[in-house]
Design a protein around this nucleic acid. Structure first.
Lengths: 225, 225
DNA sequence: GTCCGTGCCCAACAGACGTTTGAAATATAC
DNA sequence: GTATATTTCAAACGTCTGTTGGGCACGGAC
């Protein structure tokens, strides 16, 4: 009678074993990587037997792919960018794009989901294609469209490079935050909150495109909205 | 008599066992990561017995740390930035900084060394401190010094953000090249060679700072030198 | 009731991992 | 020459990995 059939550790009323494995796997893969995370640890955290991974996902790699897909499903409200009303001037579209992008990098819907996807992007493999197709590429082409409107005469390579300049600025804060903190100290980097970064990147970019006053020109902030 | 004492596989006249382990380890860690690389594989490639790693470095982790140090020694002619003669205008210093930085990202002295360091920066640990102290921080402060000259009135957070905008643009091409190729195709990304990137980043940055004509303003290139 | 399929658990598997052992081989000092 | 220290070797160690086969409990069909 001491034997309870129900799973031991976590909430038994929540998602089923498969769902719990998915979430535990997402968390484990996010902060230990594919090789670093172990099936045993994932199952322990999910309150599921070791055999559960093979049973539900066919193996560790299957769980990984599904976890990444699940992550992109979670965090990929990237699509639901607030669609600007038609007739919105391109400059305003770019402003919105940068603001939304910075916001999602600083405070993503799911931290672990974002970490997992970033890890997969760092060295692509296994599930990179899925993330790129449904998560990254739409955003990239949206940005390219905006920039094409703004710079109709620019040749393709330079347009691409301009897009990379925008994304590169934004991505930096997510990809290189730990190193930045090692260099300049955590306090200095933490001072750059989403608002300030949005402000700066918008102004830096618009100034580079000749659509705003250059950085440092005016002591007052006059960037975004 | 059939027994040859000399190591089997690689060149026997080159570096000794310790040195060969260092190089093989650097290569293995660079493209498989710490967990992915195996001591057995490293020893096989180095032509050294399995016990060699423990004997010479005290273990796998010791070899990893030394490999990263060795990598930073190899690729870290980062210090020997062409020191601009005193009296050089800050704008020219920034031009040189960007050009050198882009060049080293596109064609580092040692590809594997660069990959290994980048991997360690992606999620710091074990040997991140060494790389930052002797490789990254000097460059970061050099850039900050240049920007401080250019923007004497800017507050600290925004100066920091400006530096991140510069480095973010440059780093993008090294950190996100695989993903970029997945999105836009290898050909389109390969078209962005070091010269074009230097040209673009320089112009984009100087325009953002109000020191050059904005991107797309003139059909001719007028950027760097 | 019996039957069968689904979901899950236990225990064990074979393999790979990093590390250690103790001796053989080499280099160095005398 | 002998004596000593350093380096390399083959073989095994214990541990941890992902995976698997067999069995237990529950569900609806009949």
């Amino acid at each position: 009678m001491a034997r309870t059939r129900r799973p031991a550790a976590p909430a038994a009323d929540g998602p089923d074993a498969r769902g719990r494995l998915l979430e535990a796997g997402q968390a484990a893969f996010a902060d230990r990587g594919f090789d670093g995370a172990t099936v045993r640890d994932i199952c322990r955290r999910a309150g599921v037997n070791i055999a559960g991974v093979t049973y539900h996902f066919g193996g560790k790699e299957g769980l990984y792919v599904e976890a990444v897909k699940h992550a992109h499903t979670c965090a990929a409200r990237m699509n639901d960018f607030p669609a600007p009303p038609p007739g919105t001037p391109p400059v305003e579209k770019l402003r919105v794009f940068i603001r939304e992008m910075v916001a999602r990098m600083h405070a993503p819907a799911s931290t672990t989901a974002m970490k997992l996807m970033m890890r997969e992007m760092a060295d692509p493999g296994r599930a990179a294609g899925v993330v790129v197709d449904e998560f990254i590429r739409p955003v990239a082409f949206a940005l390219r469209g905006i920039l094409r409107e703004l710079l109709p005469g620019l040749d393709e390579p330079r347009l691409l490079a301009t897009g990379f300049s925008v994304i590169g600025q934004i991505l930096f804060y997510r990809q290189n935050r730990p190193v930045s903190e090692l260099i300049f100290g955590k306090a200095a980097v933490d001072a750059l909150d989403a608002g300030l970064v949005t402000d700066h990147v918008t102004r830096f970019t618009l100034a580079a495109l000749g659509l705003a006053e250059p950085v440092g020109s005016s002591p007052r902030r006059g960037g975004t909205a």
